[in-house]
Design a protein around this nucleic acid. Structure first.
Lengths: 201, 201, 201, 201
DNA sequence: AATGAATGAGGCTTCATTCAT
DNA sequence: AATGAATGAAGCCTCATTCAT
C-alpha cells in the first residue's frame, strides 16, 4: 500500500521538504500542500509514501536518531576511555544537528508539537540513544572516573538536557555561531559540574 | 477593549481552565469553546480578557514564571551560600511545577507548540529566571565554590536543561512519583557533574 | 453542543435545503457546501445543528416517518374496518410523499445510499411504520376479512414493497401524474392479489 | 480502446471482484484499487475493460439481469400455466440472488447508490425483466386466472416490489435463512393478496 | 460586561483516472 | 495488453474570531 520507501528519491524529497518546511514554519503551520510543493510532487503523492502527516514527523525523527545511533554504535565500540566516549556522544549529536539547522529546528522545537499518541512513538525511537548514554555513564563508573554515587536516570537527564538546551538555544537564536566549538565546554560542565575539578586540560 | 485583567475572577477562571484543558488535551486540541466551558463563561467572554488564543498561552507562562521569580527574588535576597541558593532555585521550580501536573504538562510540553512569534515572547518572559540562575552561578564563582572556569551561558543551560529534562520525564510518565524527592540528587549532579566530588552530604 | 433543534428556523432551513439538494443531486453529489448555500447559511453553521452529514439524512427520515406515523396513529385509532384502515395506510403514505417529490426522491432513492451503520439506524426509524402495517394486517385477519393463512412478514413486505415500488416509479419518471389517483388500484391489488376477487366497489 | 470484453478472463475477474468488494463494502467504499487488487490486476487494467467506475456497476447489473432474463425466456417459453409461470418468475429471481449474497447485496442495496444518469441506464437494463413480468400477467388474464380488472403497471410493481422487499430484508438481516423456502408464501400473497382465496395448495 | 450563534477559511485525506514505461 | 506511480480535484469537518443582542 505504501510505496517502497527506501532508495526512492521521492521519499527522500518529501522528507527533506518536510524538514525544511516544518523547521521553518512549525508543524502546525506546515500544510501538506506546502510540503508537497517544496518536494515538487502533488499533494496526493505524499500519501503514497507516508500514512499521514504524523508519519512524516515520526519518519524524520527515526532517520535522524537512526543516523546518530548508528554512528555512535560504531564509534563507541571498543572505546575504553569514558571521557572520550562522552565527547564522542556529544560530538556526534552536535555534528548531526549543528550542520543542519533545519533538522535541529525540527528536532529541538517542532517535534515537541505532538500529541500523547505520538510522544509514545517518539519515546520509543529515542530510547536507543538513551541506552547509549546510559552505557557511557556505566563505563565511566566502572572505570572509577565517574562517581558511583550517580543516579543513572538523573545523570542521563543532565547529559541530555544540557545538550538539548544548548542546541535549542543555538538554533533559536539563529544558528549564528559555531555549535561545535562549544563541545569542550559542554563536556567540561557535564563532567565537572558547577564545582568542577574536571580533567579537562 | 480588553477588560481589566488583574483582580478579576473571570480572568483567573479562564487562565486556570486553560491550564487544565491545554495541559490535558494539548494546545491544538484545546478549542476556545472548551476552555470557555471549563471556565464557566461564554466563548466571546474569553476575548474580553485575552487578545487571542496565543495571548492565553503567553499569559499562563507569565503568571507561572512570575510566581517563581517573585518567590526566588525574595528568598535568595541576602542568602550567601551558593549551594543553598542553587537548592532554592531548583526547589522553587520543582515545587511550582511538581505540585501541579497540569501546569507542568503545560509548561514542559504544550508550551513548545508555538510559532516563531510566540517563542520570542516566551524568551522575554523566561529571561528574568535566567538572570536569577546567572546570579546564583556568579555568586558561587565569587565565593570560589563554583569553578571560575565556567562558561556562564553553557552552565546556565546545564542547570536549566537538567531541570527541564527531569520535570518533562516526570510529567510525561504520568507524574507518578514524588518530583521533590529528586531535588538532592539533581543538585548533586549539577554541582559535581559526572566526576562528582560534590559537597553534598 | 448541538444547538436547540426544534423551533429553530435554521434547523428547518437546513433540513429543507438538504431534502431539495439531495433529492435532486443524490447524497454523494450533495456537498455540505451546496446544502448550506441553499439554506442560506455558512458551511460551518450546518454543524451547529447536525453532528455530521449522515445525521442530516437520518434526521430527514425521522421527521418524514415521524409525520406519517403520527398521522396514522391518530387516524387509525378506533377505526374498525381493516380495508378502510389499509386505505388510510396507503393514502397517508402517498400523500406525504406524493405532494413533495423532493421528499419522495429522497426517501425512495437517495436514502438507499447509506452504509451498514446508517441502515441500522434507518431500520430503527422505520420500525414504527412497520408495526402499524402489522397491526392493520392483524386487524384484517381478526375480522376474517384477510385470510389467516397470511405470513405476517411476507405480507408486510408485499404491502410495503408495492407502495415503495409505485412511488419510486412515479418519482423516477418525473412525478408527472397524480400519485394519489393510483390509491384505489394499489389497494385493490394488495387486497385481491392477482387472482383478485377483492371487495373493491 | 476498450479491450475485448467477452470471453476474457480478466473481464470476468474484475466483475466478480467488483461484486464482492462492492457487495461487502458499498459502492462508495469500494475504491477501484481495492477491486483491482481483489481481481489480481493493476488499477490501470480496469480501465482497459471498463470505461469508468459506473460502467462496472452497469455491467454487473447487465450480466445479472441478463442471466435471469435468458433463463426465464427459455423456461417460460411454451409454458401455459400462469401460476406456474409466476412461480418460475419468482424462483429464478430468488435463485439467482438467493444463492449469492454478494450479488444480492449489490443489486438490492448498493446499486441504488447511483445518480440520475445511471438510473436511466439501469431502467433500460431492467426493462426486459419487466416485459417478462408483464407477459406473465397477460397470460394469466387471458387464461382468466388473474382478474382482468388488473392495472398492468401497478400489478407489475406489486410483483416486483414484493420480491424486491423480500430479498432486501433477507440480505440486510444477514442472509441467515433460506430465501428459497419463502417462494411458496411469496407467490401465495401475490396471487391471493390480503383477501386471499388463492389456488395454492 | 457578557453572551453564543454564526461565520468561512483552511487542513487532511481519498480516490477516480491518466500515462509513461 | 498491462502496469502502478502520480495526479489534483473535491469533500468533510474544525475552530478562532466576530458581532448583534
Amino acid at each position: 500500500m505504501i510505496a517502497q520507501k527506501k532508495n526512492n528519491e521521492k521519499y527522500e524529497a518529501i522528507l527533506n521538504a518536510a524538514v525544511k518546511v516544518i523547521g521553518q514554519a512549525g508543524y502546525h503551520n506546515a500544510p501538506i500542500s506546502k510540503i508537497a510543493r517544496e518536494a515538487g510532487v502533488a499533494d496526493g503523492t505524499v500519501y503514497l509514501y507516508f500514512k499521514n502527516k504524523e508519519d512524516i514527523l515520526i519518519s524524520i525523527l527515526r532517520e535522524t536518531i537512526g543516523t546518530i545511533v548508528d554512528r555512535l554504535d560504531e564509534e563507541l565500540q571498543g572505546m575504553d576511555d569514558p571521557i572520550a566516549s562522552l565527547k564522542r556522544l556529544v560530538t556526534v549529536y552536535f555534528e548531526t544537528l549543528g550542520t543542519n539547522p533545519d533538522v535541529a529546528m525540527f528536532t529541538q522545537v517542532h517535534l515537541r508539537q505532538s500529541n500523547a499518541e505520538m510522544r509514545k512513538q517518539i519515546g520509543e525511537i529515542i530510547k536507543p540513544y538513551y541506552t547509549i548514554i546510559d552505557s557511557v555513564i556505566a563505563k565511566g563508573i566502572a572505570a572509577q572516573i565517574f562517581t558511583e554515587r550517580l543516579d543513572l536516570r538523573i545523570t542521563r537527564r543532565m547529559i541530555f538536557g544540557t545538550m538539548d538546551e544548548t542546541i535549542t538555544a543555538w538554533v533559536l537564536t539563529g544558528a549564528k555561531y559555531d555549535l561545535l566549538s562549544l563541545i569542550p565546554q559542554v563536556c567540561d560542565v557535564m563532567i565537572g559540574g558547577l564545582a568542577g575539578h574536571s580533567s579537562q586540560k
